[in-house]
C-alpha cells in the first residue's frame, strides 16, 4: 500500500460516472451480509473511504434486515402469503459521486411510517430489536425516504454523496 495514493483527488473523475445494478434475493437472514457487501463492491469505482463504505454497509444492512424480519414476518406468512418465496429487491444507481440505494419488499408494509421511524420504536422487542434501524439509516446516509402502506410492501430510498468526508478519520 503506497501512501502516495491518498493524494489522488477522488472526487474529480475525468468522465462522469453512471452505473446501475439490480439484485433480487430470497428474504433470509444469511443474505443480509451478501446485500451490504454487494453494494460496497458496487461503489468502489467512486473510491470511497473506509468510513463511507462502513456507513453504506450499515444502512443497507438495516434496510434489508427490516425487509426480512418485519416485511415478511411470521404474522404476514401466516396469512397465506407464502405461496412464492419472498424476495427482497435491491437496486443501486451511481450518478457521478452520488449513490442511490433502493430496498424494496412486497411484505406487510408499515401502517404508521412516522412512528416506525422514531428512534427506539420497535414492534418486535421480544426479538431483541433495538428500534434503531431507521435512525441508523438517517444518521449514516444523506437522505432517507420511506414509502409504505399496509399489505403493499415497503420501499426504502437512500442517497449518499461520496467524497465529503476526509480521508483520515479524526479521533472523536
Amino acid at each position: 500500500m503506497e501512501t502516495g495514493q491518498k493524494d489522488i483527488s477522488r472526487t474529480k473523475n475525468e468522465m462522469s460516472l453512471k452505473n446501475e445494478m439490480q439484485i433480487t434475493f430470497d428474504a433470509v437472514s444469511v443474505n443480509e451480509a451478501f446485500a451490504r457487501v454487494a453494494v460496497a463492491a458496487f461503489v468502489t469505482p467512486l473510491n470511497p473511504t473506509i468510513e463511507e463504505v462502513s456507513d453504506i454497509k450499515t444502512a443497507v444492512s438495516e434496510a434489508v434486515t427490516n425487509a426480512i424480519i418485519h416485511g415478511y414476518d411470521a404474522e404476514f406468512m401466516k396469512e397465506g402469503n407464502s405461496k412464492s418465496p419472498n424476495k427482497v429487491y435491491l437496486s443501486c444507481i451511481i450518478e457521478d459521486d452520488v449513490l442511490y440505494v433502493e430496498v424494496k419488499d412486497k411484505g406487510k408494509g408499515i401502517a404508521d411510517v412516522e412512528q416506525a421511524m422514531e428512534p427506539l420504536f420497535t414492534t418486535k422487542p421480544e426479538m431483541d430489536r433495538s428500534g434503531m434501524g431507521f435512525a441508523f439509516m438517517e444518521a449514516f446516509m444523506d437522505d432517507l425516504e420511506v414509502i409504505s402502506q399496509p399489505n403493499m410492501g415497503t420501499i426504502i430510498r437512500m442517497k449518499k454523496k461520496l467524497g465529503t468526508t476526509p480521508w483520515i478519520g479524526y479521533e472523536e
Partner: peptide
C-alpha cells in the same frame, strides 16, 4: 469490523 442495530439489540437485551 461491522455492526448494525442488531448488535445494539443484543447489548440492550
Amino acid at each position: 469490523r461491522f455492526m448494525d442495530s442488531s448488535g445494539i439489540g443484543v447489548i440492550i437485551g
